[in-house]
């Protein structure tokens, strides 16, 4: 996949995220997000600072263009982006030679990719639910929302991940 196609692909995924945010309503228990997919898919050659800035840009862009509270997705995205490298080394590739630029399930192996994506999504959702609900909602509600949103968003993120894999 050439660079232009790659950019177009990610723009399409972002538009899909906007449509999901604005028109797919699953009730107060589940928040769906594709931002963890973006965070996992940012080039492995990028520095942690660049990853955080890109994640922040994606989050704030989503907040502004969709019907969310400005800052909510940005906060969660930066929280998930910051430890990305650490979890990548821990769960996917512990040697320091990154052969691929954009990680796909095929490159990492499905089980490893799923674990890695799941952890990034869990961090994202923990930050999101905490900032959205803390001091207003009971802990049980927050825990349930966190669990349901993490599972649903991880499954959703696998769709563009596999699509990306087939395009490469």
């Amino acid at each position: 996949m050439n660079k232009l196609n790659e950019i177009l692909f990610f723009v399409m995924v972002f538009i899909l995220q906007l449509v999901i945010s604005d028109y797919l309503h699953l009730g107060p228990w589940i928040s769906l997000s594709l931002i963890p997919f973006f965070i996992v898919s940012i080039s492995l050659q990028r520095s942690p600072q660049a990853v955080m800035l890109i994640a922040f840009g994606l989050g704030i862009g989503l907040d502004i263009l969709s019907d969310g509270v400005v800052g909510l997705n940005a906060f969660a995205a930066v929280m998930a982006a910051a430890p990305r490298k650490f979890f990548y080394r821990l769960l996917v590739n512990s040697d320091r030679q990154d052969k691929t630029e954009i990680l796909t399930p095929r490159d990492a192996g499905f089980a490893k990719y799923l674990r890695y994506l799941g952890i990034i999504t869990a961090i994202y959702m923990a930050a999101y639910v905490l900032l959205d609900c803390v001091s207003f909602r009971p802990a049980g509600f927050m825990l349930l929302k966190f669990a349901a949103s993490t599972v649903a968003s991880t499954a959703l993120c696998l769709l563009p991940a596999f699509s990306l894999q087939h395009r490469n």
Binding site: S47, M52, L53, F56, A74, F75, V78, M79
Partner: peptide, 20 residues
């Protein structure tokens, strides 16, 4: 990286609190 993390997260929280 730590300073950037703190700055971005603080900025996000301020926006949320100030009814962005």
């Amino acid at each position: 990286a730590i300073v950037l993390f703190i700055v971005l997260e603080t900025f996000s929280i301020v926006m949320v609190v100030k009814e962005g």
